[in-house]
Amino acid sequence: MLEGKFEEASLLKKIVEAMKDCVSSCNFNCTENGISVQAVDNSRVLLISLLIEKDTFEEYRCDRNITLGVGLGSLSKIIGNGANSDYLTISADDDADKLNIIFEDKVKDKISEYNLKLLDIDADLLDVGPMDTDATITLPSADFAKICKDMKVLSESLQIIVTKDSALFQSVGDIGTGNIVIRPKTDIDHPEESVTISLDKPIDLSFGSKYLSDIIKATSLSQKVTIKLTDQSPGVFEYKLPSGYLRFYLAPKFDE
């Protein structure tokens, strides 16, 4: 039996909104420690790795490991019915073919209950494992979202060049070029506005703008995003949850 109660429905709403446009369905792997998902988009360029640790939940129990195959579009429709501030409880029996979703209004005496039909999903898992990182950038997630949107008007590719004291975002397209430079900054009064760059090796990588547009749909999940870059390797874009994370692994583009 799985039962997880979110203090606010808004958290699961944001997670599903951040995932549903790149992955249509995925397995939610539930253990006593929490819920995890790994899913790859159809083009096998972008991988999503989600971990919702049990501490994220107001109440959580999972007696036996279970895998729940979920259509994210369908889940999004159902959880869209609840108010952001509602308690949201998801539950499933060990051999369930449906996921129970219950919203409890915190003010009114109102409980809404839905069932989502589960899917049998046979998906490949990729061994992403821990890896060395050449450069790590942490910046406000809203700033990163704006950089991606602004650069996308110029080109299908965004080049990220990291040196010791700056990160350069560059797009070169038919209509012209764009450059945005950010430098480390410590903001004591507003720590969420701080920018950090740590570097072992300079980085020059290009990523597809269309995939970055999918990644920045996670912006509302966290005030900061951490970007981990390694030469000739996928970039990792991490949005922290209250306890856990939503990570995107994006394959880079290479010159011929």
Partner: peptide, 14 residues
């Protein structure tokens, strides 16, 4: 134009 790689080139399928 740079070529888009896919993740299979970097990670093994478990």
């Amino acid at each position: 134009t740079p070529i888009q790689n896919d993740l299979n080139e970097f990670y093994n399928i478990i």
